[in-house]
Design a protein around this nucleic acid. Structure first.
Lengths: 276, 276
DNA sequence: CGGCTGCTTGATTACGCTCAAGATTAGTGG
DNA sequence: CCACTAATCTTGAGCGTAATCAAGCAGCCG
C-alpha cells in the first residue's frame, strides 16, 4: 500500500512540521531529535512539560527505560481506537493528535487536541478500555508508556507518582474549563477562547503565540466547540473582517491579542494564575 | 446569625435525608452511621465505591487513620471555595455536594453533583488551588483526606495508588461524557440523560433507581446541563405529560425507564459496559 | 400573614443549525 | 505535470430550538 512515492510525500510533511524558522506552524522538537528517534527524556525539549517533570537523575533514567519510542505516525493513523484494551498511556512528542468519542448513532464528539508534551489515554485507566479514539492530525511522534510498568515506578519514585497525579488533575481541570465553554459561551466567545488556548500552548512550547498553523479541520474545531462547521467558518471571517486575526486556510496570525481576549469573554476566576 | 430555630430545622432536614422507608430520596448511609460519626472505612457502606476499594486489611487500617471525619455540613455551607489552598480531597459520605466554577463576570458553571462515595477536589491537585467551590445541597457528611498523607500512603500501598488513578481516570471519563452531552444533545436528551445518570448512581448505592429526590434546584440542573431554568421546567412538564416520569417539586418517579432511555438518545459506544 | 425565593407557563426574539450552492484545495491517476 | 475527482471550506437564505422577557403561582421562612 505504501509506495516510495508516498514515503517521499510524508517525509516532506514531516520536514514542514519541524521547520522552525518559517511562518507556519511548528509543533515539533529540534531537528536533531528527528535523526535519532530514540531521544532520552533528559535530552527531550519537552522534558519540563511532560511526565518527567520533577523527576531527575537516576529516577529519570528508570522512567526512560520503560518508555517505548514509536516511529512517527502518519496523518489519519489511529494511536488507539475506542474499545481497545488499555495497556499504555501516550505522550505526544511532535505533531498533534485528536481524541474523540463516537456514539451509537454515528456521531462523534472531539474531546481534545493534544500538542507535544501532553498525555493521552488517561481516561482508559478506570475501565481498562479506551473510551475514545486517538487519531493523528499530521505526521506525529509519540512515546508509549506501558501503564503497569508506570504504576510500579510510581511506588518507587515519589516525584513520579506526584507528577502523574498532577497531570491527571490538570486534565480534569481543563475539561471543567471546557464544560464552562460549552455550557455558557456563544459561538464568538468559543472560537476566541479556542484560539487563545492554542496560542497559549504553543507559547509554552517555545513557538510563536501569534502565528501558527491549525492542524485540525474546521469540522474538528466545530465539533470540539459544539458548533456547526459553517458557524466556525463565519466566525473566522468575522474575526478577520474585524482585524483581530488573519486567517489563510490552516494558518492563523493573531493581530490583536488584546481584543481577542475581550472577545473570549469571561474566564474562570482561576484562569489568571494558571499558566496552562 | 444561627438561632436555635435554625438548628431544629436543619435537624429535620437531616432526618429526612436518612429516612430509608419513605418514598422520598435517600442519599445517605444507614441510620446507625449517623450516631457515631466516626465510622471506620471497613464499616462504611460505601466501602466498595469509594477510595478504599481494593484496599484491605492492614492497609485499609492505615488509610483509615489519616482520614478525618467531619461533622455534617449544613445546606449552603461551602466545603471549600474557589481560590482556597489545596490541602485535602473529600469523599462524600451522605447527602450531596455541588461543585461550580465562578467566572469573572459573575456567571457560574456547575461542574458536577457529588453523591455518597464520590470524591471531590481532584481538580485542585495540579495548581494547589481549588478552581471551584463546593457547596452542600443538603445536610451532608464528608470525609476529609489530607493529600500529602495520601501521597505518602500511595507509595506504601500499591492498591491505593491504583485506586487513586482509577478514581481520577473515571472523573476524566465522566467529564468527557458530559462534554458530549453539552456539545451534541438537545434539551430533551440532556434532561433525560441527567435523570438516568442520577438514577443509575442511586441504584449503585442501594437506593431505588425509580424514585428519588433531587437535592439540587432547577437552576442548578439547568446550569449543569447548559440550559435555561425555563427550559428545564418545560422539559419536566413534557416528560410528565408523556407519562415518562412523575414529578412533584424535588421528588421524581420514573414511570417508563425504557422510554427515558430512548429520549436520552445515543450514548457513547463505551457506555454499555460501564456501570457508573 | 407577608415577603421572598424558586418554579412554571406564555409570548417573543435571536442565535446558530440546516439546507443548498459555489469556491478552493488536496489527493489521485493518467 | 496536468486533469479530474473528492473533500474541505465559504457564503447565503430560511428555519427551529432554546434563550430572553414578563407575569403569575406555589412553597418556604421569618
Amino acid at each position: 500500500m505504501l509506495g516510495p512515492r508516498n514515503t517521499v510525500i510524508h517525509a516532506i510533511d514531516w520536514r514542514d512540521t519541524i521547520n522552525r524558522d518559517s511562518g507556519t506552524a511548528k509543533m515539533s522538537e529540534k531537528v536533531v531529535d528527528i535523526a535519532k528517534i530514540k531521544v532520552a527524556c533528559q535530552n527531550c525539549s519537552l522534558h519540563q512539560l511532560c511526565l518527567p517533570m520533577g523527576v531527575d537523575g537516576e529516577d529519570l533514567q528508570k522512567l526512560d527505560e520503560i518508555i517505548k519510542r514509536r516511529r512517527p505516525v502518519k496523518r489519519g493513523d489511529d494511536l488507539f481506537q475506542v474499545g481497545d484494551g488499555f495497556r499504555a498511556i501516550y505522550a505526544v512528542r511532535s505533531g498533534s493528535i485528536k481524541t474523540y468519542t463516537p456514539t451509537h448513532d454515528g456521531q462523534e464528539q472531539v474531546t481534545g487536541f493534544h500538542l507535544p508534551g501532553e498525555i493521552l489515554g488517561l481516561d482508559a485507566i478506570s475501565n481498562s478500555i479506551h473510551p475514545c479514539t486517538a487519531k493523528s492530525l499530521e505526521t506525529s511522534s509519540v512515546c508509549e508508556i506501558p501503564f503497569d510498568r508506570l504504576e510500579e515506578l510510581g511506588h518507587q519514585i515519589p516525584s513520579l507518582q506526584r507528577q502523574m497525579f498532577k497531570v491527571m488533575s490538570r486534565e480534569i481541570f481543563e475539561e471543567e474549563s471546557h464544560m464552562l465553554l460549552l455550557g455558557k459561551r456563544n459561538a464568538e466567545e468559543r472560537l476566541a477562547a479556542f484560539l487563545l488556548s492554542v496560542s497559549r500552548r504553543f507559547k509554552r512550547r517555545g513557538f510563536s503565540d501569534t502565528e501558527f498553523n491549525l492542524s485540525m479541520s474546521r469540522n474538528d474545531i466545530g465539533n470540539y466547540l459544539g458548533l456547526a462547521v459553517e458557524t466556525v467558518s463565519r466566525m473566522f471571517t468575522r474575526f478577520q473582517d474585524d482585524g483581530v486575526v488573519e486567517v489563510d486556510r490552516k494558518s492563523v496570525k493573531i493581530l490583536d491579542m488584546e481584543r481577542l481576549h475581550r472577545l473570549a469573554g469571561a474566564m474562570p476566576v482561576q484562569q489568571s494564575n494558571c499558566s496552562a
